[in-house]
Design a protein around this nucleic acid. Structure first.
Length: 483
RNA sequence: GAGCCCGUAGCUCAGCCGGUAGAGCAUCUGCCUUUUAAGCAGAGGGUCCUGGGUUCGAAUCCCAGCGGGCUCACCA
């Protein structure tokens, strides 16, 4: 159907009258108007719409009777010639009609569409039939993924797939889902990140690899978080985080231009201009976007008690202005690193509308990132923000197996203290590093959030076809054996 | 997990100062041979989310539960 509309959409009434192009197509009826012994129906298919005109004197008794029995939602096939009506609309003048699928249940109303958010997600097929904008979001999502893939392939990156079910859930700070393999009698985690496997591949000689696939994190639902979400991760040997800062700016700016047709896009109430990137250190970002009176100096934020004091100052302000900022709520005994991390999220994150690279994260918060030579308390790591959304995270990879082993041990100590998100030990990964991993840069981009930004949607559920919802009735617990 | 808001026909919603449940679209019947939110005339359609309470009487007031949305928390 889209093809027919594409080919004849511009044709004049005269040329159609002369040619009377024969056509045969199928679609779903979303609107029907009877006029005695004739009638019109609007057919939808493949994202296109085309009007069909039915006449008793053309279809005969039997054919016209079938037309009269059609309901909204039915899928029909029609044969006839194309032309234009009085009002100039491209129309199939139907000679023959066939019922292809009967709708037993009525469609939601055409004018208001389906507005109930819950039903839209539970019955996404109805949402897609009735609300044209929804289809567009997912078409855009597919174009975004295609662009990212083309961009990386053009630069020599190889697409790979690594395990979703892992013995050790590593590569990120998050709680994993647990599952079980019957035949091996083995507990496995759904992956929280592909990172450690992708770096094993770099060790194996794939100097440039990427993966676009699902991650699973056992955490709360929100307008920005769905337990399963799509991540692009890519790794490049013989590069560092500076190289990836440039690459990220190029990739995301190119993406915005390709998808939106402009470097300047609108997200919610904001204008986001990808021709104006800024780069700030984490501490600079805190000072730059400080709201609670006179801001700290970046150097002051290296010291734990000073950071905690500023965090208290911020929290007092934030409590009076809950609409402007969140509270940092820095735990009393936390290090400068942890306190700065909290403070950054509370002060700056929401305000990072314009595309921004925030770098110099504390090493303590970055167990897989290489530390800076001149200051080992800071890691060669950055995050990407735009439109107030955190879009990506990248760093020069830690390739020293001894240092990595020590970092894992530190993470284990945190686990023992009850930190469920702390990394597990991954001995095999450390062993891989011990065979020598070239200096490598790595990056992860949240594809869902990128789609939110580029389709101007405020909820991640709008860009995931089937977001997780509670079941309406508690499902019977699944049998443990597969069928 | 916490706070606030919401749940009425297949869909979108009104009714909420307690007094027999409504509209538009959709469905069914009739009329109408170029309409496009077609039109006109008529008909059918309800677990007012669920359960309890107050009351002579509850969609409406109160309590609990279920589901959803938003904010926060968890979380990059």
């Amino acid at each position: 159907m889209a093809e027919v509309v594409e080919r004849h959409g511009q044709a004049s009434a005269e040329s159609l009258q002369a040619e009377r192009p024969r056509t045969r197509l199928a679609g779903r009826i979303l609107s029907i108007r009877f006029h005695g012994k004739t009638g019109f129906a609007d057919l939808y298919g493949g994202g296109a719409r085309l009007q069909a005109y039915f006449r008793r004197d053309q279809l005969g008794e039997k054919g016209y009777r079938l037309f009269e029995l059609l309901d909204l939602g039915d899928v029909i096939g029609v044969e006839g010639h194309l032309g234009r009506t009085k009002t100039g609309e491209l129309t199939v003048f139907v000679a023959q009609v066939t019922l292809l699928a009967k709708a037993l249940l009525p469609l939601p109303e055409k004018w208001h569409g389906l507005a109930d958010v819950e039903q839209r997600y539970r019955q996404r097929y109805l949402d897609l039939i009735v609300n044209p904008g929804v289809r567009q979001i997912f078409e855009t999502r597919a174009r975004i993924i295609a662009f990212l893939r083309r961009f990386l392939e053009a630069r020599g990156f190889l697409e790979v797939e690594t395990p979703m079910m892992q013995l050790v859930a590593g590569g990120a700070t998050a709680r994993p889902f647990l599952t079980h393999h019957q035949a091996l009698d083995l507990d496995l985690y759904l992956r929280i990140a592909p990172e450690l496997y992708l770096k094993r591949l770099v060790v194996g000689g794939f100097d440039r690899v990427f993966e676009i696939n699902r991650n699973f994190r056992n955490e709360g639902l929100s307008v920005r978080n769905n337990p399963e979400f799509t991540m692009l991760e890519f790794y490049q040997a013989y590069a560092d985080y500076r190289v990836f800062m440039d690459l990220s700016e190029e990739m995301l700016t190119g993406l915005a231009e390709n998808i939106a047709g402009s470097k300047k896009i609108t997200y919610l109430d904001h204008s986001v201009d990808f021709s104006r990137w800024q780069r700030l250190s984490l501490r600079e970002a805190i000072c730059e976007y400080w709201l609670a009176g006179s801001p700290p100096k970046p150097a002051e934020l290296a010291e734990a008690t000073a950071v905690r004091r500023y965090a208290e100052q911020h929290d007092r302000w934030a409590e009076r202005h809950p609409d402007r900022a969140r509270t940092a709520e820095v735990p009393a005994d936390s290090s400068a690193a942890v306190a700065t991390g909290h403070l950054f999220e509370a002060v700056a994150e929401r305000q990072l509308i314009r595309p921004t690279i925030v770098y110099d994260f504390p090493t303590e918060l970055s167990p897989l990132a290489k530390q800076r030579d001149d200051d080992p308390t800071l890691a060669e790591r950055f995050e990407i923000f735009a439109g107030g959304l955190e879009l990506g995270n990248a760093f020069s990879e830690l390739s020293d197996p001894l240092e990595q082993h020590a970092r894992f041990l530190e993470q284990l100590r945190r686990r023992e203290r009850g930190d469920l998100e702390a990394h597990q030990m991954d001995e095999d990964y450390v062993r891989a590093l011990a065979y020598g991993m070239p200096p490598t840069a790595g990056e992860g981009i949240g594809v869902d959030r990128l789609t939110m930004l580029l389709t101007n949607t405020r909820s991640i559920r709008e860009v995931i076809l089937f977001p997780l919802l509670r079941p309406l009735r508690p499902e019977a617990p699944p049998e443990s054996d597969s069928p």
